[in-house]
Design a binder for these strands. Sequence first.
DNA 1: CTGTTAGCGCGTTCAA
DNA 2: TTGAACGCGCTAACAG
Lengths: 327, 327
Amino acid sequence: MTAEHTATLDDVARAAGVSRATASRVVTGQGPASQHSRDRVTAAVAALGYVPDASARALVTRTGTRLAIAVIGHTAAVLDDPYVGRVLTSAAHVAAEREVGVSLHWLPLHDPGSLARLADGRGLGGLVVVNPTRPALDTVPRSLRGRVAAVGVGTRHVPSFDVDNRSGTDGVVRHLVRSGRSRIAMVTGPSWLPCGDRAVEAYRKVLHDSGGEPRVVPGDFTAIRGAKAAIEIMARWPDTDAVFALSDLTALGVLDGLHALGVRVPGDVAVAGFDDITFAGLSRPGLTTSTHPVEEIAAAAARAVLDRRDTSGATFYPSALVVRDSA
Amino acid sequence: MTAEHTATLDDVARAAGVSRATASRVVTGQGPASQHSRDRVTAAVAALGYVPDASARALVTRTGTRLAIAVIGHTAAVLDDPYVGRVLTSAAHVAAEREVGVSLHWLPLHDPGSLARLADGRGLGGLVVVNPTRPALDTVPRSLRGRVAAVGVGTRHVPSFDVDNRSGTDGVVRHLVRSGRSRIAMVTGPSWLPCGDRAVEAYRKVLHDSGGEPRVVPGDFTAIRGAKAAIEIMARWPDTDAVFALSDLTALGVLDGLHALGVRVPGDVAVAGFDDITFAGLSRPGLTTSTHPVEEIAAAAARAVLDRRDTSGATFYPSALVVRDSA
DNA sequence: CTGTTAGCGCGTTCAA
DNA sequence: TTGAACGCGCTAACAG
């Protein structure tokens, strides 16, 4: 009770009347232990408020004390995306509860070795890959199995935590159709990013069902690209009456591009985004978009890795339409 | 050269022909060492690409392997501020180079014990306090001396890394005056935040010099507050022709509030912000603001803590006017 | 100025 | 099922 000095495993063992080895087995959950000692140890842990020392544990298990967040992209600029900021913030929060830290890394898209190098580095407790490609995930070494999660697509060995792009897109595009739009263009994400595929499919399906023609333009999640895409779209299909961008940042760029063209929003063209970033509510007109529990997704991925949960397979999180002024 | 397994201090010592203790002294920079062995060890470090194992070091120095970023504020919502995201991102990057992670913490403004509790926790390699108050900084235990830095005001024991609010404000307000505005209102930061004081002083000085009357309204760095502040300002001083907000988010809120009032920007009222967040260039009209090297500041603070540099005193970073459409 | 010795807190053999 | 002993990589104390 006289906490004073943070309790060590020795203290727990002594209080429980067992050896340190036994206490260790109970605490880690690895190895055998009788029900009796199990009870005594857990009681002692609770009484002393014991928390394993992450450094000591890492030293012996060669397992590291930090959670790496790796973002795949063309340039290091991907790290500046507000989406990454939200993921990082949330993961850092989860990590803090377990006395571990997070670090942030950029993985060049065309450098297949970078993930393996990162994974080989010491001090790595776990790895969360943001916007991965499947080939990239296949390069994570076996030694990291069970300590990797993806925010985006996963593989058989890497559990995935992602937003339900399909139903999210469906909701937005249907909203556009409902409000009388029929010539709807879409600005996608980067072509190499597999998790955008389901969104494009959903978009095509809604358009097909409502008798519209797909008008797809590639994007890269940046605002600059959105402005350019808007100009391309209006040049190629001048009768376009709505633009859906798979990223709010891009949608804001579309707003900019249309404004430069003298096109009124939503009067002439409706614009919708995807993500519901903070600024979506602050633009003029306010951006209609779909909101995602990004923080929740990131937290789940971080927990899966940190707690070594066997969460294989994919977990999808719902995306909900947010109607503002732009569509 | 056969790197294969990451180099250990033993490897370095062997390669340099000295004992491990000597190698340790050179690497850490603590304790005496002859020039000769110093050279040989540094050469060996470079040749082997040696990076100290953070866990092992932390275990013996009882110093932890993570860098905590603590943000002081009224509610946990301060963690969502994009400014915090930028600080965290940059710090995480610096930390990654040293194989340590960062964690993110909210320090309730009116809970004086929270900083001490955080600092007492194990596993803490260093602490960067964002937007601190001096009384709060005085609660960091002595044991952390030399491993704490502030992004904002500092104290005698805590080095400070901050933007030069004074000259930044001076630049923005002078720009407003130059462009013909004279009835300039200011929305400040939270009243408890000392680093805003210099900005208010600078604002008052410019107004005094140019024969204007100060019109100061308290803010809290949020957009919502900005919208309300705009309405308050126009009600109290209807002839106001410019508003300067000490935060871009707030300035964007001001834009919103003025728009709701039917006031044209910059026609009737000019609006300027502070920070130059990503969205400053995406709002309509584009926000005139002052840009800060937030990433650089955060990186310097993180490095000071991680490298145990004796950077006492305050380091100020320049703030530069960015003229867009709103002023 | 240098090398030797002794742990830091923990997981993991190996015998019992 | 348990406990004793060992070592992870490193810094700190002490002798030389």
